[in-house]
C-alpha cells in the first residue's frame, strides 16, 4: 500500500519534470518546481511513516519551507529581474505612494 503511494508520487514527480522541461513560460517552470517540491515533502513524510521514524518529518518541514522560499525567489527573479526589491510593504500605513 505504501509502496503504491510512493510509486504514485514518483510518477507525479516525473510528470512535473516534463512540464518543467517543456515550459513554455517561465511561470510554468516555477510552478513545476514548486509542485515537485510539495510532492517531495509528501513523499518524505510517507517514507518516514513507512519506516516509523519521526525525524524524517523534520526534513519534510525544512523541505516545505525551502520550497516556498525558493518559489518566491524564482518568481521574483522572473518577474522583476531582482532579488532586492520589495514584493509587499512591511507596514500598510508607512510610506504611502503619494507621500
Amino acid at each position: 500500500m505504501l509502496a503504491a503511494g510512493v510509486a504514485g508520487l514518483l510518477i507525479a514527480m516525473g510528470l512535473m519534470v516534463v512540464r518543467l522541461l517543456r515550459g513554455p513560460t517561465a511561470y510554468d517552470r516555477v510552478l513545476a518546481v514548486n509542485s515537485f517540491g510539495t510532492k517531495t515533502v509528501l513523499m518524505i513524510a510517507l517514507m518516514g511513516f513507512a519506516v516509523g521514524r519521526p525525524d524524517f518529518l523534520d526534513v519534510a518541514i525544512v523541505y516545505a519551507l525551502i520550497n516556498f522560499i525558493s518559489t518566491i525567489a524564482l518568481m521574483k527573479v522572473f518577474r522583476l529581474r531582482s532579488l532586492g526589491e520589495p514584493l509587499a510593504r512591511l507596514s500598510m500605513s508607512r510610506e504611502t505612494p503619494d507621500a
Binding site: 516555477v30 514548486n34 523534520d58 518541514i61 516545505a64 516556498f68 518566491i72 518568481m75 514584493l87
Partner: peptide, 21 residues
C-alpha cells in the same frame, strides 16, 4: 504532531506561492 505541522506549512505556503505565481 509533526505531521500536523507539515500539513500546516503546506496549507500556508502552497496557496501563497500559487497566488504569487
Amino acid at each position: 504532531i509533526k505531521l500536523c505541522i507539515v500539513w500546516l506549512f503546506i496549507m500556508l505556503t502552497s496557496p501563497a506561492a500559487a497566488h504569487a505565481l
